[in-house]
Amino acid sequence: MKIDNTQPLEYSTDQNQMNILGFWIFLGAEIMLFATLFATYFIYADRTGSGPTGSDIFEITPVLIETFLLLTSSFTIGLAINAMRLGRKNATLTFLAITLLLGAGFIGFEIFEFVHYYHVGAGLQTSAFTGMLLTTLGTHGAHVTFGFFWGLFILIQIKRDGFNPRTANKSFIFSLYWHFLDVMWIFIFSFIYLKGMM
């Protein structure tokens, strides 16, 4: 492996550069995936059958908490990558751990939210609207859950191996993924919750 020291560590080998480019392309595919979900959700937003509508079931408090948690975690993962660039291992680990904790909190509140929907009679099978709502939120939530475990393993590897082209590359790609989920959440927050509550 040729290591190019003029580049940041995460870009320092050819393979690393390809990994990052490949991941950007993967995010392009993810955008299509979420775009399809959103487009379908908008078509279904008023197709509530005999079930509740969005304004019947949406509650602002848990959604605001989720938004706060995820937005903050997007900030802390940025700090983690910044610390990594500065070569500060402990700071990186701390910020990464905070990010994951915030992520876990987000998942916890989302589960709480889903239970609430179930209790107010908005299950997966209730109507096309509720089905699509839970599918869209669920896809995002599954992404965050996957990201939580992914980040956890990266954290363990940094702790064990320190910074090298491999761990730096993984952390950087993970941060792209995490930011992406945050951006998707902003769309969900604005166009599903806020629009639905109005």
Binding site: I43, D46, R47, T48, S50
Partner: peptide, 19 residues
């Protein structure tokens, strides 16, 4: 056939009309 519980006519969302 859109089975809106509440709304009385078939005035739907824009996305619906499009398709």
């Amino acid at each position: 056939g859109h089975n809106h519980g509440s709304s009385e006519t078939d005035q739907d969302s824009a996305g619906h009309e499009e398709t």
